[in-house]
């Protein structure tokens, strides 16, 4: 079983990631969502406050348990295979910071497109400036986006940059309708605006809405 290096969630695991509020802002009240790679279910729980209901698919048993503990409907399974849902059964399919940990990212994306009207995908940006420098100067598989893991222990097995993602969407007929970038906070407030003009260089995470 491909476990993407074994996520182990505590039963009462909670945590709010920076992407959550962006995602909640994008989804209208009362929508039905599918969260692929839902982890401990914390995003789905966060969405309930806006009367957004849904369910999750998660590969780790600990994640499924933790989601159920939160009264979130979750099923154990891979995010990168054919899903047992009808065409356009959901308003939104979400894949939050999970695309690069999948063996078949393109299957995940095409299934999201099939089962939902709109898709929300986020990922850490391999094209981030510090990554480029680590490979250029140090000659290593870049470490800044591995968040403490090493080249061999990371679950990020198909890393991609913002440019890679936009290329892929263009070539495969996915229409990007919204995007949001978390830009590195490094040089003070004014240059941040300038940095945001070059997201592939300065964004740590990108969030996209597709149709």
């Amino acid at each position: 079983m491909n476990d993407n290096r074994k996520y182990n969630f505590a039963l009462r695991s909670t945590g709010i990631r920076a992407e959550y509020s962006v995602i909640r802002n994008w989804i209208p009240k009362g929508s039905r969502v599918l969260d692929l790679g839902c982890g401990d279910g914390s995003l789905l729980k966060y969405l309930i406050k806006k009367k957004i209901s849904g369910e999750g698919v998660e590969i780790s048993e600990s994640g499924v348990q933790s989601a159920k503990y939160k009264k979130i409907k979750a099923r154990r399974g891979r995010a990168d295979e054919v899903q047992p849902f009808k065409d356009k059964e959901f308003d939104y399919a979400i894949c939050n910071v999970t695309l690069p940990v999948l063996m078949y990212p393109e299957v995940c994306m095409s299934e999201m497109r099939r089962v939902s009207k709109k898709q929300i995908i986020s990922f850490s940006n391999f094209g981030f400036f510090d990554n480029r420098i680590d490979l250029l100067i140090n000659g290593r598989m870049p470490r800044p986006m591995l968040f403490g893991y090493k080249w061999h222990t990371t679950g990020l097995i198909h890393q991609l940059s913002i440019a890679d993602f936009e290329d892929y969407c263009r070539k495969n007929g996915y229409k990007i309708t919204k995007k949001y970038f978390f830009i590195i906070d490094r040089f003070g407030p004014i240059p941040k605006f300038i940095l945001s003009l070059f997201p592939n260089m300065w964004a740590i995470t990108g969030i996209y809405m597709l149709e």
Binding site: G127, R132, L136, M141, Q159
Partner: peptide, 17 residues
């Protein structure tokens, strides 16, 4: 992975080499 063309591709194009 650190072959020089890989380094240049990430540096200049910002894509997974």
């Amino acid at each position: 992975f650190a072959f020089f063309l890989n380094r240049i591709q990430l540096l200049l194009n910002g894509k997974m080499p």
